[in-house]
Nucleic acid binder design. Structure first.
Lengths: 211, 211
DNA sequence: CCTGTTCTATGACTTTTGTCACATAAAAAG
DNA sequence: CTTTTTATGTGACAAAAGTCATAGAACAGG
């Protein structure tokens, strides 16, 4: 790991903090599909994303995975930052959707850095705030919107995060992430295709123009 | 406001912090139904609940109110604590369901106290963590559960928070908080009554035994 | 190529939830 | 003690979403 890598993705971090990160943390790499974090697992470190893309899910007891939001380079998992004091387990699952590199920082440094580095303090609070707001938006959608709107929103988020108008997922996979069923998603996508919003291919959806 | 009042509800706060709170904050009281916070409003202070009970909602653009969680004495609104730096507006609405007293602390003290008082620092992080987890549980319910289960869970939370097995709400009001319709709630409650789980009265639901 | 597997399409049906209409019951107002 | 208002109960129906069954299309591996 180089100083430049950290500074590139976390430009607000002051020099002393960058040094400490260099000294005390390690790089971990995950391949597409790997889980960075499992439901029920104990946290040992905070992970800062420096490359790739991560999807964060909430799981229920029957193993259903509900997609909540993306983590991009320059971001971090909010939950892992705060479980420092009480040794808590993860309430969420996170999965790499591109090959991903993270900086893993042992939780023992959290409290110390919070008071020592203003930039770290602001980063942690901002991480919490932004993840909280993502959750609120997620709640909006499942509480107030019907499946067709949720699907469109899902495709839009996906497109923005992957910087691609082609979504490499089967209808089955999309259905699971929205906690719906394959047939429902197939039908809604078909309707969207007829409206010229998408084009459907095997294992992928090409986005033409969303409202 | 007395030192004792603060120490009673926030026993972890150290003496210096209690003094600062006494010096720099004011008590505000709200009657049943009053809004402590409106969607779109600017934050000017953080509010610590010392008496009463507050419900926190997410609103959509059509004015639907979706109930998320309760705030009890000893707790605080997570969002208001973190919007200190960037002057952000509220993403939520909070309403008193009992006559409520809060300590209103101007946001200008947030950063200073975070580094000065360990107990404040832990309180803020713990507030964030616990509200985050409440939101995750909320998401579980709307994503994975059907209305009958959500209704039972709603009644259970209500009962725990109000320390009463009688819920003083009309079917209409319950329906609005679950973003459902009056008829659906009436029918589900009727079914629950037949199963001996509740007894129905005008403008109230008496909880007998929930699963 | 052929063959088995996976993915998608779609009709028919069920269940759940939401809506409309109207009846009845309970409380409030006069 | 009426009248009016508000809350609840319920049947009938509509719409959305989930399930089942089945067929065909696309691909993968020999």
């Amino acid at each position: 790991m180089s100083t430049a890598t950290i500074m590139q993705h976390f430009p607000t971090f002051e020099a002393g903090l960058v040094d400490e990160i260099m000294k005390n943390s390690e790089i971990r790499t995950f391949r597409v599909g790997d889980q960075l974090m499992r439901t029920g697992q104990y946290f040992r470190s905070t992970m800062l994303i420096i490359d790739g893309l991560v999807k964060v899910y909430r799981e229920d007891d029957q193993g259903n995975e509900f997609f909540m939001y993306y983590l991009r380079p320059g971001q971090a998992c909010a939950l892992s930052m705060i479980c420092a004091t009480r040794q808590e387990t993860s309430e969420i699952m996170a999965k790499a959707v591109k090959d991903t590199e993270v900086i893993a920082i042992p939780l023992t440094f959290m409290d110390e850095w919070m008071s020592k580095y203003k930039s770290w303090y602001h980063f942690v609070l901002e991480t919490y705030r932004s993840r909280f707001e993502e959750l609120l938006v997620t709640i909006d959608h499942i509480a107030f919107r019907a499946m067709d709107e949720r699907l469109e929103f899902y495709l839009k988020k996906h497109m923005e995060s992957l910087h691609s108008n082609i979504i490499q997922l089967s209808h089955q996979e999309i259905a699971e992430e929205l906690n719906s069923s394959r047939e429902v998603i197939s039908r809604l996508l078909k309707k969207m295709e007829q409206l010229g919003k998408v084009r459907l291919h095997r294992n992928s959806v090409e986005i033409i123009k969303l409202s």
